[in-house]
Design a protein around this nucleic acid. Structure first.
Length: 862
RNA sequence: GCGAAAGUGGCGGAAUUGGUAGACGCGCUGGCUUUAGGUGCCAGUGGGGCAACCCGUGGGAGUUCGAGUCUCCCCUUUCGCACCA
């Protein structure tokens, strides 16, 4: 044992040992309880970032802890390897996306190994490899057969200069990020997967996920957005096909003062032929991007179509408008607008001077004014101004009106979802080819199993932004699997969310000669899934959906992919900038900033180290390239070692909260590890000769054991609730007591010291596995630390003869009393009243009540 | 615009889930160790006041013997919004 803690050297020795022993390779063992701990797989962007380090440390701590509890733990790792950044690198640096991706994977795998994560690397997956994506293609053809995959037109962002489809991310202020051209909406045929067919199950089974965060479940419920309402036909005054709308508020039907249709609605398109204003408005709606933020935050505008509809209940004539806030993709693409009881309708009506008629009122008779703002309530309401349907609450009005509409055959009850079918086509190169062949006579034909995989060529050169497979007629040309005629391949690729929807299952069956095999059911479902909260709806919904698809193809037997979910917070750092007249806003890297503090430690000035330029601090913000405030984990690992980085990320904040990066505090974490090392080093001779038990213990030894076993209770609670910051704090607190403990040459004391060190080393093992491994050996503890049993709380160590109670007077802290542990309420009351300070505060006033909370406090109410 | 969270010392956070607010750490202040140093150790550290004591968990109301914790309203920040992953 070296006198100084030198993590770099120590960690490489321990890692080499794990590698040699194949310590993390696992196999299915029906006799042992399995535990599948999964962290979301990274995109191989080139460098590990702090978000990865945090995510994977949390997963590793849980995995190692579960292993010490005796479970057969699977912790795999892989690469979400397809995606847009590889294409951008290809365009900028003329390197093929495949080459760029594989190099990044090599580098990042090395970084993960340097962190000491306990992965079974024999199960590694890279989603861009044909042996992975061929099963995705196979699965897609099954979905086509079942009618769960289909093709329809959908709108995309179109860059008219680059002649290419843009991702929402590539549209900035309505313009293409490279060309700067105003983006247009364009409809193209695309493949969809029918997730709406599973909407009800996806919604209902959220109730079977008690260990998923409520926030995620709520977001998923809202995202699915099940709403039951009514479809109603509004006849047009001029006759012809009636205008059908969907509404969730039939009770407000009498308040409809206008109708609005989407710019893509047939009625709008028809009107545009004769009306220039309508045509111009529709053209205007076609510019700009397709993202929901853009659509929902634009100013609400519209143009009248010059058509009147007839309210089926009141018989009133109301005008039909085309409006930019009505979406073709939801409901029928047309709405009845009730300005009095809907916020958006109200804004629109106010803008264009359309009437606002109140038809719902508070049930308690209170008067409301709908002229300035809408009143959307539907609980404790009553309908008014609604003819024979007046005087009803929401539910009765809904039922009566729905009944009437059905009797008249002008509509029906309808359940709608906000959730839309999943568009999986991408007009990009670096993705999994959609396994479809288009034949003039046979249409869209799935590629037969024997012809899979449809290989994506990896040795390509980019000419501009065009996808190399779209640009290559030879790649496209093929023959129809059905009739043998000349045919063309689909050149679109899948959304990368498809790959990340089933990787967790493939980890269970490495090398399988099918998509999955029987091994999957040993490991699945995932016991603990860990990843960023930013995935709360999209990935985590696709992940659940795909599992159900696989279940229905009898590939897995569970209903849900993961029983427990932990969403870790973002990693933040301070960012600093100054505004310069020439360069605009200049962001300065945090490690180039000099901070001046006042006598209380408050920051009063920040300057650039090189030239003393005054800087403005943003406060805590997400690490990003644009703000130049990313902290590179590699530098920290090189400087402090993996254990220190792991310890800091666990200690700085609880997993679900954001983590504020602080270089000084990282150094502080290393100080703690160094102190442990130094303590064990300085007692190494005595500890070697320690006996494992001691019969009689003196007061100090008992107190130390009480501290450690008390801390162990906190640690166990912290581990179970994943509050690793409190686990570390409890370790530090108990270690502080140990540092003040002098074992001298007393065998009983030395035995106690060895016992508590054994506890400390084991509870730290999941967090700082390298240091713990070495100390475990140094203490001559039996067996491999990885499989050492988690320490047990010794209840007898916790008992004490006295208890300290807090005394309050009228809820304010006034004193403390020490009484016997078994003292009854009478004794406690007397002791409390006898306290000088308490007596002074009670004074002459009459005591009204005394509340005694056993083991905690006494409150005297005067 | 819609949906979901979070606000506690100079900073990160803790609080046994309605019972001592500030555990643990960083920073800061003073001291010690002849410490090359960004090392190590000791003490102090929510604000005000000499003190008794008073104030204090984003702001405002409420429930309670007692509220950081529960209820309502408001403010601010962060995340997601379907082609970033």
């Amino acid at each position: 044992m070296e006198p100084r803690y030198s993590p770099q050297q120590l960690e490489s020795v321990v890692q080499a040992w794990w590698l040699e022993q194949h310590s993390f390779k696992v196999t299915e063992d029906p006799d042992r309880e399995k535990y599948y701990c999964l962290s979301m797989l990274p995109y191989p962007s080139g460098q590990l970032h702090m978000g990865h380090v945090r995510n994977y440390t949390i997963g590793d701590v849980i995995s190692r802890y579960q292993r010490m509890l005796g479970r057969n733990v699977l912790q795999p790792m892989g690469w979400d390897a397809f995606g847009l950044p590889a294409e951008n690198a290809a365009i900028q640096r003329a390197v093929p996306p495949a080459q760029w991706t594989y190099q990044n994977i090599e580098h990042m795998r090395g970084q993960l190994q340097r962190m000491g994560f306990a992965y079974d690397w024999s199960r590694e997956v890279a989603t861009c490899r044909p042996e992975y994506y061929r099963w995705e293609q196979w699965f897609f053809t099954r979905l086509m057969e079942k009618g769960l995959a289909y093709r329809k037109n959908a709108v995309v962002n179109w860059d008219p200069v680059d002649q290419t489809v843009l991702a929402n991310e590539q549209v900035i202020d309505g313009k293409g990020w490279r060309s700067g051209a105003v983006v247009e909406k364009r409809e193209i045929p695309q493949w969809f997967i029918r997730i709406t067919a599973y909407a009800d199950e996806l919604l209902e089974e959220l109730d079977n996920l008690p260990d998923w965060p409520d926030s995620v479940k709520t977001m998923q419920r809202n995202w699915i957005g099940r709403s039951s309402g009514l479809e109603v036909d509004f006849a047009l005054a001029a006759g012809g096909e009636p205008l059908r709308v969907f509404t969730t508020r039939p009770d407000t039907l009498f308040g409809a003062t206008f109708m609005a249709v989407s710019a893509d609605h047939p009625l709008a398109i028809e009107s545009a032929k004769a009306d220039q204003d309508v045509a111009a408005f529709i053209a205007q709606c076609a510019s700009g991007g397709v993202s929901e933020v853009e659509l929902e935050s634009i100013e609400k505008k519209g143009v009248p179509l010059g058509i009147d509809a007839i309210n089926p209940l009141s018989g009133e004539k109301i005008p039909v408008w085309v409006a930019n806030f009505v979406l073709m993709g939801y409901g029928t693409g047309a709405i009845m607008a009730v300005p009095a009881h809907d916020e958006r309708d109200h804004v629109f009506a106010t803008r264009y001077g359309l009437p606002i008629i109140q038809v719902v009122a508070p049930a308690n008779g209170e008067l409301i004014d709908v002229s300035a703002t809408a009143w959307p309530a539907k609980d404790d309401t009553v309908t008014v101004n609604s003819g024979e349907f007046s005087g009803l609450d929401f539910q009765s009005a809904f039922e009566r009106i729905a009944g009437y509409v059905q009797d008249q055959d002008i509509g029906e009850r309808k359940v709608n979802y906000r959730l839309r079918d999943w568009g999986v086509s991408r007009q990009r190169y670096w993705g999994c080819p959609v396994p479809v062949i288009y034949c003039d006579s046979c249409g869209a034909v799935p590629v037969p199993d024997g012809d899979l995989p449809v290989l994506l060529p990896e040795d390509v050169t980019f000419m501009g932004v065009q996808s190399p497979i779209k640009a290559d007629p030879d790649w496209r040309a093929t023959s129809c699997p059905t009739c043998g005629a000349n045919a063309e391949r689909e050149t679109d690729t899948f959304d990368t969310f498809v790959e990340s929807s089933w990787y967790y299952a493939r980890y269970c069956t490495p090398g399988a000669k099918a998509m999955l095999d029987k091994r999957a059911d040993y490991w699945l479902p995932v016991d603990h899934y860990i990843g960023g909260i930013e995935h709360a709806v999209m990935h985590l919904l696709y992940f659940r959906f795909w599992h159900k698809l696989m279940r229905d193809l009898e590939l897995v037997s569970s209903d849900e992919p993961a029983t427990k979910l932990l969403c870790q917070g973002m990693v933040l750092a301070e960012a600093y900038y100054h505004d310069s007249p020439e360069q605009g806003r200049v962001w300065v890297r945090p490690d180039e900033v000099e901070i001046e503090k006042d006598a209380k430690g408050k920051t009063i000035d920040a300057r650039r180290a090189t030239d003393g330029a005054a800087l403005t601090a943003t406060g805590w913000t997400t690490m990003s390239k644009s703000k130049n405030n990313g902290v590179d984990p590699q530098g920290l690992i090189d400087r402090y070692g993996a254990d220190t980085v792991r310890l800091f990320t666990m200690f700085a904040s609880p997993p679900e909260q954001s983590l504020e990066w602080n270089d000084d505090a990282v150094a502080g974490s290393q100080r703690f590890l160094r102190r442990i090392w130094t303590l064990v080093y300085s007692h190494r001779e005595t500890l070697r000769g320690a006996s494992s038990t001691a019969e009689t213990l003196d007061e100090q030894s008992q107190s130390l054991r009480r501290t450690f076993h008390g801390a162990l209770q906190k640690i166990n609670r912290g581990m179970e609730r994943h509050q690793f910051n409190t686990v570390v704090a409890a370790c530090m607190e108990s270690f502080n007591a140990l540092e003040r403990f002098d074992p001298g040459s007393d065998p009983a004391r030395i035995a106690v010291m060895r016992e508590v060190l054994g506890i400390l080393v084991r509870v730290l093992a999941p967090i700082t596995p390298h240091l713990s491994h070495v100390l475990w050996q140094e203490l001559k503890m039996p067996g491999e630390l990885l499989d050492a049993p988690w320490p047990k709380v010794d209840e007898s160590a916790l008992t004490s003869e006295t208890q300290v109670l807090v005394v309050q007077v009228n809820g304010k802290l006034r004193g403390q009393v020490e009484v016997a542990a078994e003292a009854d309420e009478v004794v406690i009351r007397e002791a409390a009243l006898a306290d000088d300070k308490v007596a002074r505060h009670v004074g002459e006033r009459a005591i009204r009540k005394i509340i005694v909370v056993p083991g905690k406090l006494v409150n005297i109410v005067v």
